[in-house]
Computed example of a mutant assay.
Amino acid sequence: MTERSTRTRRHPLGRLVAGRGGPDTRFGARLALGTAVTALAAVPFSLALVLVEAHWAPLYRFDQDVAERLHRSALGSPVRVRLLEVLTHVAWGPLTMRLLVAGVVVWLLRRRAYRLAAWAAVTATAGGLVGLLVKNVVERARPHLPDPVAHAPGYSFPSGHAMTATTSCAVLLLVLLPLVPRAWRPLPWVLAAVAVLGVGYTRVALGVHWVSDVVGGWLLGLAVVTATTLAFEAWRGDTGRPLTTPAEGLEPEIVTEDPEPASRPGGR
């Protein structure tokens, strides 16, 4: 038995849905399990939402204390404020993240990886729409600080920057990891973590979000990625492909699949 087959058979989702049932039974089991896992992934965000909506005093004091301390630090350093603005709007900004995802989608379409391209596009789009919907339902005001160093429109919870960074980095990681040599794979994870954590810090340091807004964006982004990824895994199972793990990427076969079979010797 190869290392690949052993790793696949040990996948917990694969063990739970495997059995003697027909395709409909196995798909039903995967659907039920995926729904349960998605609901579980949404629990942390739901808890954060409840605490925000209830105006829980310890959370309010924590948000206020962090915002005031970072604001005082920003007031004394215009250069630092400028750097934070470049990081939050350019390096890790939503436009940059969405352009990176769009580039990956185009590359996948050129390789004829249509379902993976659809997953990437749907994940990014769903993340943006869900975040906007929750913002307008919660209607939490942004921080009001004396002598603000930055301004942002709209409501505060959850942070759209934090959520976009989470969903976009997840898409980039799960699509591109198979292309990275195994010895180098920790590097993309580190870069993604720096981007996600870094953009969250910039939003709080600039005084346009509370800490709980940023955490809410991270948690909601993870819930969206979990839901779409489990749906993609259900498709893989129905087509007979082995289930994967985050360490392998969402579709490891993309490395070996030939996007232009007609160009091979002997092809049509």
Rank of each mutant, 00 (worst) to 15 (best):
V134N: 00
V190P: 10
A113R: 15
E257G: 02
R30E: 08
A141D: 12
V194C: 02
P178H: 08
L49R: 04
T125H: 05
T167G: 07
P252R: 03
G154C: 06
L206A: 09
V79A: 12
F157M: 05
R61T: 15
A162E: 00
L108V: 06
L129R: 06
G216H: 11
V180D: 00
R15H: 14
V214N: 06
A183L: 13
T96F: 00
R182Q: 10
T202V: 01
W235D: 03
G249D: 02
V204C: 08
A117V: 12
A223K: 14
N136Q: 06
E3H: 14
P261R: 09
W189G: 15
P153W: 13
W189E: 13
A48Y: 11
H55E: 14
M163I: 07
S73E: 15
V255G: 13
K135D: 13
L84K: 12
R20V: 12
V215T: 15
P94L: 09
L33K: 05
L133E: 10
L16F: 11
P158F: 09
A195S: 08
H161R: 15
S156F: 14
A91K: 12
V105H: 11
S212K: 01
T25P: 02
A234E: 09
Y114K: 14
P181A: 09
L179P: 00
V52D: 03
V204R: 15
P181T: 08
E253I: 00
G93I: 00
A162H: 02
A223T: 14
G131V: 13
C169D: 12
L222W: 05
V225W: 10
V81K: 01
P186T: 09
V224K: 05
A262Y: 12
A36T: 14
R9N: 04
H161S: 12
A193K: 11
T8R: 15
V79R: 04
R30Q: 08
E53N: 13
A150S: 09
P186R: 06
V101E: 02
A41R: 08
R10S: 06
C169A: 10
A183T: 13
R15G: 10
A227W: 04
A67I: 03
M1H: 12
I254W: 03
G14Q: 15
V50G: 04
A150W: 12
A54H: 07
T125W: 11
R61L: 13
S77W: 05
V101H: 08
W218L: 03
E139L: 08
A183V: 15
L87S: 07
R182L: 05
L243C: 13
G240D: 05
L70C: 00
R69I: 07
T164S: 05
L132R: 13
